[in-house]
C-alpha cells in the first residue's frame, strides 16, 4: 500500500480506462476553455490541478521522463494554463488560469535508470514545475515499484 490512507479530498488518477492522446487542437484553450474536448474521463485534468495542494506522480522512468500513460495524462492537462505568455527568468511560459499553486513531487522507478536519465529527469521536473507554476518540486528515484510501496515521501 503506497498510501495507507486516501482522504476524501484526494483524487487518484490511474489507468482505469482507455485514455486518448492529446491531438494538439488547443480546444481546451479556444473552444471549451479549461476543459479538454476529448470526452474520455481524462478531460478535466486542468480543473483537478486547480484544486490541488500537492500533485504526486508515480511513474516508470522512460528515457529520463514519464511512462506513456502518465505522460498522456500530463499532455492532457494544459487546460490548467492559459494560452497567453509571460516571461520568467528570460524565458516565455504560459500564464496561470487559476490562482492556486501546488507542490510537484515525482517518484520514478526502474531497474536500470542511468545517470544520464536521472540528470534529465531532474531537468524535466524542474521545467515542469516552472511551467505549471508549482511552488516547490521534488524528484525521487527507486529501483523498483516495490521499493516505492514501502511508502512515498512527501
Amino acid at each position: 500500500m503506497i498510501y495507507p490512507q486516501i482522504d476524501d479530498g484526494d483524487v487518484v488518477i490511474s489507468e482505469n480506462s482507455a485514455i486518448r492522446n492529446c491531438i494538439g487542437c488547443f480546444g481546451c484553450w479556444i473552444k471549451t476553455p479549461g476543459k479538454c474536448v476529448l470526452k474520455d474521463g481524462y478531460d478535466n485534468m486542468g480543473h483537478i490541478f486547480s484544486q490541488a495542494d500537492n500533485v504526486i506522480i508515480i511513474s516508470r522512468c522512460c528515457y529520463g521522463g514519464y511512462s506513456p500513460f502518465v505522460k498522456n495524462v500530463l499532455d492532457r492537462s494544459i487546460s490548467f494554463l492559459l494560452p497567453f505568455f509571460q516571461t520568467k527568468n528570460n524565458e516565455t511560459h504560459h500564464k496561470k488560469r487559476y490562482k492556486n499553486t501546488f507542490k510537484f513531487i515525482v517518484h520514478f522507478y526502474g531497474e536500470n535508470i542511468t545517470s544520464q536519465e536521472t540528470d534529465i529527469a531532474h531537468s524535466l521536473i524542474k521545467a515542469n514545475a516552472v511551467n505549471l507554476h508549482a511552488n516547490d518540486s521534488k524528484v525521487f528515484f527507486y529501483h523498483s515499484f516495490d521499493e516505492i510501496a514501502k511508502g512515498v515521501q512527501l
Binding site: 486516501i6 483524487v11 479556444i30 473552444k31 476553455p33 479549461g34 486547480s50 484544486q51 497567453f84
Partner: peptide, 24 residues
Amino acid sequence: PRAKTNGLKRSRLYDQVNNAVSNK
C-alpha cells in the same frame, strides 16, 4: 481569432472550471 472562429469572446478564454472534483 481562433476563439472568435469558435464563437467565443476574448474574455471567455480566461474561463475557470469551478465544480467540485471527485475521485475518478
